[in-house]
Amino acid sequence: MANHYYNSEDLKKFGQVGQFQKEMADKFFAWYGTVFQDSNLSAKEKSIIALAVAHAVQCPYCIEAYTADAYEKGYSEAQMMEAVHVASAIKGGAALVHGVQMMNKAKEIAM
């Protein structure tokens, strides 16, 4: 085993996950391919959504892949960073909105 958890070279091996469970991997990659095709949303729009989600789920492989993909879809650096801010705002907002839960509980148990 490597002495670190993430290695950028491992991204190239993503397709090999089928070695341990081929049927599910085949279905995943077929579905994945369909998801990113031009459809009701364009492939370009999907690319910037993927970049934002990559940050929300904090996946370094996805960030690497979709940073390059965003460039290759013609996005500017400012547009890419705004997408990250959208992800961050949702993540930050998701934490903060739970403050309502905390307030509810606090009011329930406090005098």
Partner: peptide, 17 residues
Amino acid sequence: NPAGAFLPASQTELERE
């Protein structure tokens, strides 16, 4: 042409932008 180590975007879309 790309300013970095990546491929160019779609010509039609980028032309519009």
